[in-house]
Design a protein around this nucleic acid. Sequence first.
DNA 1: CTCTAGTTGCAAACGATTTGCAATTGCATT
DNA 2: AATGCAATTGCAAATCGTTTGCAACTAGAG
Lengths: 143, 143
Amino acid sequence: MTETVIQKPDYETALREAGVRITRPRRVILGILTDAEDHPDAMEIFKRAVALDPSISLSTVYRTMKLLEGIGAIHRHAFEGGPSRFEPAIGEHHDHLIDIETGDVIEFHSERIEELQQEIARALGYDIVHHRLELYGRRRRKK
Amino acid sequence: MTETVIQKPDYETALREAGVRITRPRRVILGILTDAEDHPDAMEIFKRAVALDPSISLSTVYRTMKLLEGIGAIHRHAFEGGPSRFEPAIGEHHDHLIDIETGDVIEFHSERIEELQQEIARALGYDIVHHRLELYGRRRRKK
DNA sequence: CTCTAGTTGCAAACGATTTGCAATTGCATT
DNA sequence: AATGCAATTGCAAATCGTTTGCAACTAGAG
């Protein structure tokens, strides 16, 4: 029987290697990120953090996310009409399908689309530094 | 000899049909939009407007953009790291390649990518309401 | 255990955008 | 052309998400 192995990122080690101190609030936030199975925004992370340690401030959440983003440990996504949402940077690149009714985020990947993007950019005389592909959809009503 | 015909949208008529009054500030803003060949943001539109009529306010620019967006006459694009930028909604659908050095916006379209997106959404049980595909790139250095 | 640079919480500042309000103005009606 | 009033304006203040200055606090090297 095959188990789907969900790999968890070791944010603490990554930060230490970047010469950053591991403080109590940071440990709490990193724990939340490690456990998160969704794509929470800063306020959501803050709420979860406050539940564990009421003294944590929203600023620290933002500062920690910025740090992690800086060392490439997480990705920040500015989906339409809402605050930035975060996800671990582990695993292969993927794009997102956002359920416009629930806000749920579904990940997908299309090598074919990636190739086409490259071709297009190349034809226009550009090298792609990064891209953003987001599908905003509604769950098809099962008939 | 074939001429590229650039079609200009008739914002004024569109607004009138939507039961909206055409005021002096609106006329100025619509004129700017009609003439714009780029993808200006609200502040840029405001600056161009003030040059023609110093009494125009930024609020009115925002309100007018919202109106036009509401009737589907323009599209608002929230490209990374900057204010929303606008473009006329005439012409066929296209995506954007943003020059990360100059901010220039290049339009492109790939029917193949559109199809693939549909397939992906469908496979995930979703109907696409809209999407966002943005390539952020750097002009390839001509060797 | 000490020392200090890194980190914190707080409140204030920020940039983009929206909004309340009293004054103004399109424009349908006379 | 003059009237009337709802739509629209400019302004300032409010909003939202996020960042920042600062004095107090603490991780962790020595």
